[in-house]
Amino acid sequence: MAARALLLRLRCARLLPRLRCARLPAIALGLFTAPGCVHVYQPLSSLHRPVVVDPQAANFQDLRLSVVCPPGGLVSRGEAEVLCERVSKLFENQGATVTTSGSDRIGEDLAEDPEQETGDPVAAPTTDLVLELRSRETHFTNDPLSWVLCVGTATLVPAYTESTFAQDVIIRDGTGFLLASDSLQGRIIRTFGFGTWAGNKVLDLVWRKKEDELSTAQVYAEVSADLYGQLSQLVFNAKMRWQILEEATPNGRATSPVPAERAP
């Protein structure tokens, strides 16, 4: 955890103004004020809903789950792979057999209906559920005035930068039938300034309860708990819906007069 905190501090330092004619002093200033970066996370909607399912329990025994993490929006290809890997670990821990994909390929396969096109019998789906994760930024604020004030007051007045993100979750069954979808939204605020950093540290030490402390480690823990909890709950709900539809149609394929929404 300490290593992660250090990494984040150095990244914060990199974002300092790059003074062309005084690079060395700038680097020195950056390292000196690196601790002045405070990250705060606030769940906006859906991310902090109550979660009933226990992500440590075996909730998905005998379930075949495909996790699809298309790159784009907020994540690069490499980051999408990391995302997929961690989410697959989450569900493997709960008993599911997980395959991952970094592209839309699984969704595209599902969109084709071989029976309609060739008249051949429907092949058994290779997976029970498909979990698709897409990330996007819905709002970004970087107030130049706050940076002017920040620099003008020797970082006593903090500079604010804010990003609002949405983690779109779509869950389909093996045939492409839409079972659940949601958009988990939150925002991360980065406050830069010695005043805010020191003020928060003092408040953490003397005033705030442990669960209210604002530290980088807390941001990791909170985002992690929210995302894992909501993903587990959404997939569990989808699994229950899928089982109900399986019961409704004895041949194992969900049918409905309502056209199934397909992957783009």
């Binding site: 705060v40 925002r187 928060n200």
Partner: peptide, 8 residues
């Protein structure tokens, strides 16, 4: 957001 005047 959590901060000086708002608890987490």
């Amino acid at each position: 957001a959590p901060g000086m005047t708002m608890s987490r």
